[in-house]
Design a protein around this nucleic acid. Structure first.
Lengths: 226, 226
DNA sequence: GCCGTTATTGACTAACTGGTTAGTAATAGG
DNA sequence: CCTATTACTAACCAGTTAGTCAATAACGGC
């Protein structure tokens, strides 16, 4: 029983695939051009679906962007396999925590760009998200555990704020990646070059470990607030 | 000889003031909404001049943005009074360099945002700038000088790349400022709070100095690239 | 086989956006 | 004074943008 003989091509329906294609195109679009710079028409063209299907599934440009953002953040935590570092010797565990954080940032430039983009928009979208917030306790816990064990064993200094340590580990890797375009130009060096990245990785690990393993000799005393 | 009697209000001409008002409005607009999100009409309305005057003086939205960007970067280097740190004892000089860099970032959030915005656009505008590039040798030189003297006096470790050190000093301050909106939400802490900022300042100084003053004991050997 | 639901589409729109046209008048130089 | 330049304006334009309408047809349950 031949249906559709010499007729209009049967429209294949595949909601999951359509949704996925839209999300993939949207990710690329927003990562490339930002939220204000991203174009819904381009997302539709790129994903090969009709523009209205985007509104059917996601409701608005902002909601689509939020979905992209939530997925990226969820990925971040999912890939961050830090729990298995908790049992390692503190110095070794911390080395691995720093270098794997670094590697993860290097491996996912999309994440870096979306984080920047979201902060340009004052984090307004993420704040409206329901799903992202609970995900973040884990990494901080790992830092706390390693820190405490290292201090008990006498290899790490006392009085280290885990939040500050987290901000430092991330910041040391983040800045030279997020700003690599302006920095490469201003410093006359290709910061994206493989050798540079590896060198930076070693430097970052070294700096964090030096800080942790040195007895806190410098009081933050005489550096006055201007 | 009264001219303009009971007639149309004489149009006051003041090119410098108009130009300045446009630039000021443009700075606020681009810092608030980004380049793609910034609106020329809004800049015109805010500065109180006719929109075409913007095109008369600057030619295009992009060119206006570039001018704003160049001024912010020029300010950065102008305010960075690092030359007078070169004569200080190395440890003291470096402490001041780190804390003043930190303070400067805290004091000029516009700079942070424009740096992020420009990097979202892959640094394309800055690269086209003629005026900005030569400004950057100075800070790196100050770092080199302090570093060398500290090494000669035996208080700083050997084999420190000045560029990496610069990236670390900046990164430690930059990240928690540029991403404070998302981080405050994710970490459940108000990173903009005065106490937090001061605490972070001390931590950053401490980390950099700990790194510099510790003999380089940890080889970057067994941390393998994944 | 019938029917409500839903995936999908093309055509459309109202508001907006960067940029232009065409013109007026203040000003500086001679 | 005369004239060329320049500061400045109002109105307009063509193209774009996010979002909508109305219709079609594939699908799943009965």
């Amino acid at each position: 029983m031949e249906l559709n003989v010499g007729a209009l091509p049967k429209v294949v329906r595949n909601p999951e695939a359509s949704r996925a294609k839209i999300l993939e195109a949207a990710r690329i679009e927003f990562v490339s051009y930002g939220l204000s710079g991203g174009r819904v028409d381009r997302i539709a063209a790129q994903s090969g679906v009709n523009k209205n299907l985007i509104y059917h599934y996601f409701g608005s440009k902002d909601a689509l962007y939020l979905e992209v953002l939530e997925r990226i953040y969820a990925d971040l935590r999912a890939r961050q396999q830090d729990e298995n570092l908790r049992g390692l010797p503190p110095v070794e565990g911390m080395k691995r925590l720093v270098s794997s954080t670094f590697d993860h940032f290097v491996a996912t430039p999309d994440l870096i760009r979306l984080m920047s983009i979201e902060n340009i928009h004052y984090g307004e979208h993420l704040k409206r998200s329901k799903s992202t917030k609970p995900l973040y306790g884990g990494l901080l816990d790992t830092i706390r555990i390693l820190l405490k064990r290292g201090q008990q064993e006498g290899v790490f200094r006392a009085n280290v704020d885990p939040v500050d340590l987290y901000l430092s580990i991330s910041g040391l890797a983040y800045f030279f990646l997020s700003n690599q375009h302006t920095l490469s130009w201003l410093l006359d060096r290709d910061l994206a070059a493989r050798r540079r990245v590896l060198k930076r990785r070693a430097h970052v690990v070294e700096m964090v470990l030096a800080y942790l393993t040195q007895a806190s000799s410098f009081e933050a005393d005489d550096v006055d607030v201007e």
